[in-house]
């Protein structure tokens, strides 16, 4: 028994010294956590989860609620699924959709296929929609996200969800080891920024004639650079007379680099 205890003690000491060396004898490096996967795990998703994704995109990345809200900038979408059929039969309809899903999809990527009366671009007599293509540039929803939003809208409208969860959508920005998300190319000019961020939706600027926000065509004569910069970064800090608070997104400061911000401010200040 004495031998046995001695041997056991010896072995335990050896193990302990190995463990101690591994813990204290060498520098500790914490391995990097697995890269965050932005892409959707579609294969393993239930419909409820898919709808939840759609809701998240609708309220977040998609920036849909910027206009599709109770302020009347764009039609409300809670009943869109139930009126789609009548829309497709409408004489003014220019699209090719044959089902609800296709119709909604089309209205997201080709918004001008049908413009609800009174919501068209100013001067276009409701033939052209002010809405951007959600799959392109500034919003950049993936095919899966578009479908998820449709699923969400169907669910919202209280009808049966007929969207199928895609299994093999091409992945954009696949495994990004650095996890820095999608890196966009920097904007080249202030015009490009205004175009991409769809400022003209609400403001009068250049050719655009939005009416939700102050006229920017001669803003440089009225406001200095500091005011403009603050108005972009924190729009609610001071509301121009005659306009509502909480209309302008307050995320522009996050979306633009410092260089781009200065480019935009310089441009606006130069509009006199």
């Amino acid at each position: 028994m004495k031998n046995f205890l001695q041997v056991v003690t010896f072995s335990l000491l050896v193990i302990a010294s190995f463990a101690a060396y591994a813990s204290f004898g060498i520098p500790r490096i914490k391995p990097a956590p697995p890269p965050v996967e932005e892409k959707l795990d579609l294969g393993a998703m239930t419909m409820d989860q898919f709808i939840a994704v759609g809701e998240k995109v609708f309220n977040g990345k998609g920036t849909c609620t910027l206009c599709h809200n109770s302020m009347g900038r764009a039609p409300m979408l809670d009943k869109v699924v139930s009126i789609s059929d009548s829309r497709m039969k409408d004489a003014r309809y220019k699209g090719e959709a044959t089902s609800i899903v296709e119709y909604i999809r089309e209205s997201m990527v080709k918004p001008s296929a049908f413009v609800v009366a009174g919501f068209g671009k100013a001067g276009s007599n409701d033939s052209e929609s002010p809405m951007p293509d959600v799959s392109g540039g500034g919003i950049g929803m993936s095919e899966a996200e578009v479908l998820a939003v449709i699923a969400y809208l169907q669910d919202l409208g209280g009808v049966e969800v007929t969207v199928e969860i895609p299994t093999d959508v091409p992945e954009e920005s696949s495994d990004d080891e650095e996890g820095d998300g999608e890196a966009r190319a920097p904007y080249e000019s202030a015009e490009a920024i205004i175009e991409e961020l769809t400022c003209g939706m609400c403001h009068m600027i250049g050719e655009e004639e939005g009416e939700m926000g102050p006229d920017l065509r001669t803003i440089g004569a009225l406001r200095d650079k500091d005011y403009l910069r603050r108005a972009i970064i924190d729009p609610n800090a001071e509301i121009a007379e005659g306009f509502d608070a909480d209309m302008m997104p307050d995320t522009l400061g996050d979306d633009l680099s410092a260089k781009e911000m200065e480019m935009l401010v310089d441009y606006l200040a130069g509009l006199k």
């Binding site: 813990s23 500790r28 391995p31």
Partner: peptide
Amino acid sequence: RDASVDAYTPDLSFAANTVSVATILFM
């Protein structure tokens, strides 16, 4: 892909301790 909460790689010290426990069990 391993999507479990334990998908991360444990560090050496953690691994050494786990191996030590396993070694003792084995013994």
